[in-house]
Design a protein around this nucleic acid. Structure first.
Length: 413
DNA sequence: TCTGGGGTCCTAGGACCC
DNA sequence: TCTGGGGTCCTAGGACCC
């Protein structure tokens, strides 16, 4: 079957410095007035920059940089915490606007959305992709007060690369047929998927630009990187990306982790943190209506060595207690292998199946057991607690006696 | 100046089965 | 007695993205 249209019309809508914008909208008199604004973790602990205003970026600050270092580069900057809840809400508002103007919208992250305008040619009349992008940019700003930039082209990769040339608050469309030429002029580091490790590998052969890599014979590349990676890389540097814009697939894992202000070597305290993580992961599972077959514990030692242990259960689990009990054994195993101060503790749930109709219990709820040892349904209370946690955060309802206030919590900024 | 938290995907070895 | 493959699941680790 032949397609009626010669090429696809893909847009990537990317919110400009999203966390900064949201922080300003939520606090117009505080963050809103600070031109030099950093959103991220506290500077006195181990926090990093989540997003920095463009004025701060000019000083060399970028996301992922330790906040302490960012403040050394830009001492006048104001630092505020991440307004998580507001970001989720505003992200949803942006998505809703996009869904009203495009038939297919895929949220790639909290602040990025792929659109496929295919199939709406008749509705659009003769509108060019660039004009569509401008119209959509304005609609989003009008209805959400969020400024976005939009990249466009015939596939997702090109749209993604184009959006960098659109920022801030602009539009950049790569014309059909110009994909390879557009990619050819870029440094390899700009290609999504070519991260620090692959960049370093390529650099051992003096390769830092797409152009240079294109000159390497294909067979050589295959011998060097293996069939799969070579194929993937070749497509990337030729501006080819057959992947479709698809609406969200079900989530594959749910996890929570904490980096401590100072390393923790005390098993009792680690157990307390593990409980807290189990509460968070458990309510996440129930909120999604899924159960997990695999539980993973992650431990990062003081020297930044990261270790993990996982266990797949015969039956899927979604209770705080069930998750916790498996996780505790895994944590003990990891601690026995190497007992040293822990920098980070994490807990993940994967192998997710849709939950059935049976009970969903919270961590410290006993539930009543029938003669067969089966739990009786007592979902109402757990659901009520989960609802409160959803509104006020995972710390809203915790068994105070067993999970005291987190002494390792960073100071709120 | 050390290096967050939430995810996805890939690889590789061993177990197990056909 | 010797010698195969392939497929799937599980586990551990790592790369990468925002």
């Amino acid at each position: 079957m032949s397609t009626p249209h010669p090429h696809r019309r893909i847009l990537l809508v990317d919110c400009d410095a999203f966390f900064v914008q949201v922080a300003r909208l939520e606090d117009p008199d505080g963050a809103g007035k600070a031109e030099l604004l950093i959103v991220g973790g506290a500077a006195d602990g181990r926090g990093v920059v989540t997003s920095a205003s463009y004025a701060v970026r000019k000083r060399g600050v970028h996301s992922g940089m330790p906040t302490a270092r960012a403040l050394r580069l830009c001492p006048e900057a104001t630092v505020v915490g991440v307004p998580r809840r507001a970001c989720v809400r505003r992200s949803r508002e942006v998505r809703e606007v996009l869904e009203s103007v495009a038939p297919v919208v895929q949220a790639a992250s909290i602040d990025e959305f792929y659109l496929d305008l295919g199939g709406m040619e008749r509705l659009l009349g003769g509108e060019t992709l660039e004009d569509s992008a401008r119209r959509i940019r304005e609609a989003v700003f009008e209805r959400t007060a969020i400024a976005v930039s939009i990249g466009g082209g015939t596939n997702r990769l090109v749209a993604k690369l184009a959006v960098r040339h659109a920022k801030p608050a602009g539009v950049h469309v790569v014309a059909a047929g110009m994909e390879a030429a557009f990619v050819r002029g870029l440094p390899l580091a700009e290609i999504p998927g070519i991260g620090p490790a692959l960049q370093a590998t390529l650099k051992t052969r003096g390769l830092t630009r797409v152009e240079e890599l294109l000159a390497v014979p294909e067979t050589e590349l295959r011998n060097w990187l293996g069939e799969n990676r070579a194929h993937w890389l070749l497509q990337r540097i030729q501006g080819v990306d057959p992947s479709a814009v698809a609406t969200a697939e079900p989530r594959k894992s749910i996890s929570a982790e904490r980096t401590f202000r100072t390393d923790i070597d005390d098993d009792e305290r680690l157990r307390t943190h593990l409980m807290r993580l189990a509460l968070s992961v458990g309510s996440g599972l129930r909120a999604e209506g899924v159960r997990a077959r695999t539980v993973t514990v992650k431990l990062r030692d003081g020297d930044f060595t990261t270790r993990s242990a996982s266990r797949t259960l015969p039956t899927a689990e979604d209770t705080d207690r069930g998750i916790y009990e498996v996780a505790l054994r895994l944590l003990q195993g990891l601690r026995e292998k190497r007992r040293t101060g822990a920098r980070l503790l994490g807990l993940g749930a994967s192998g997710l199946d849709e939950a059935g109709e049976e009970t969903q219990l919270g961590l410290f709820e006993e539930g009543t057991r029938t003669e067969g040892g089966e739990r009786e349904p007592e979902g109402r209370r757990t659901r009520a607690i989960d609802a409160l946690r959803a509104r006020f955060g995972p710390g809203a309802i915790v068994p105070a006696r067993l999970v005291p206030r987190d002494p390792d919590e960073g100071e709120p900024t």
